Simulated assay, not measured.
Amino acid sequence: MTALSQIYEKSNIGSDLLKPLQTLVSSDLERVNAIILDRLKSPIDLIPTLARHLIAAGGKRMRPMLTLACSALVEHNSDRPIRLAAAIEFIHAATLLHDDVVDESELRRGVPTANSVWGNQASILVGDFLFSRAFELMVEDGSLDVLRILSSASSKIAEGEVMQLVSSKDVTTSQNTYLEIATYKTATLFEAACQVGAVLDGPNLENERALASFGRNLGLAFQLVDDVLDYQASSEMIGKNVGDDFKEGKITLPVILAYKKANEDEKKFWQRTLGTKQQNAKDFGQALAYLNKHRALDETLTHAQTYIHYAQESLIKFKPSPYLSALFDLCEFCLKRAF
């Protein structure tokens, strides 16, 4: 059985693996959502309207849940994780608004993107507003450690976006370069969400390093699974058009792995379809055939499994608890998730 078939076997298991974490943080997550709705208020009607359009589209609130769970894992007991989880979700929502503009995306979580409804300018400006709300919450918390972690994460995310833009349509992008982009663009906020939970009771370098490593490796695994789902899932499963990465000329790990093994005709195909974005209706099917020929999707999932192993190893130092078990389940959910 291939790695890919193992992912989709008994796909309902994926959702079940997320439930323990959702149950543990459900009451706190309601408070996070209340803060988000309160901080969306503005006398400029377009701001809450556009932002709520994105938030109402759903999402698992994965990053806020990580902050809540990791703070509980180190037995922190205050309201600070609630407000910081809201700040992290604001950062995430801001990056989504900006991403959709850069990628010219039309769907997110199965509904029209904000930029397709209100235009690019409004989406960018409201994204800036959400970033500002995040930093207001950080300042109100008053911790320099929190500011250090989240401001650094915000800078790295922006750098990752620029790195992706530079490498867009470059079919010769190396695996190492791609993983660096994925680390900056995606894994950084997972890392920060977990790391923040470790510093709320004061500096604890051992806990901080362990939870940062957990979040970073989990985030990388999530991104690699997303890379595969863009070619293999249905639109209903991923909440966007299947093949958007291909259509947008994105160079993801499956493409990099397939290009590395490609013959000259295949390389010309990738250069035409992704390098110059000269695509026709049959090209996505041909791309999928080449990816399967070189087992690039399965190999990508093998890399994801490796990062999940590293993430789970980072948790070993913590004493057993329901939160620890839920985070281990979350790792399995990453590989078996069904949208």
Rank of each mutant, 00 (worst) to 15 (best):
A85S: 14
L288F: 04
R133M: 11
A51W: 11
G127F: 00
I36A: 10
P112N: 08
V242D: 01
E75W: 01
T2G: 03
I7A: 12
T67P: 03
S154P: 05
T23I: 09
K261M: 14
V102E: 09
G197D: 10
P254D: 12
G59N: 10
N77L: 03
E264P: 06
V25Y: 01
Q271E: 15
V111L: 09
Y184G: 02
N120S: 14
A212D: 01
Q6R: 14
K247Q: 08
L257A: 14
E264V: 07
S325E: 13
K277E: 12
A338I: 11
D283R: 00
G243W: 12
A289S: 15
S167L: 13
F339G: 15
N33I: 05
G249P: 08
L96A: 01
S123Q: 04
S174D: 12
L17K: 11
P320H: 10
Q164Y: 06
I251H: 06
K293T: 11
A338L: 10
A193W: 10
S152L: 06
I238D: 08
D38Q: 15
S155Y: 09
I36C: 12
R148C: 00
D244F: 09
R295M: 08
E236Y: 08
I308R: 06
L18N: 00
D16S: 11
L54H: 06
G14W: 14
L189C: 02
D141W: 02
V146M: 06
I316N: 12
V126K: 00
E159R: 07
G59S: 09
A87I: 06
E180T: 14
V111E: 06
K60S: 08
R295L: 12
L211Y: 06
S151C: 13
F284M: 10
L220W: 05
V199M: 03
T306P: 01
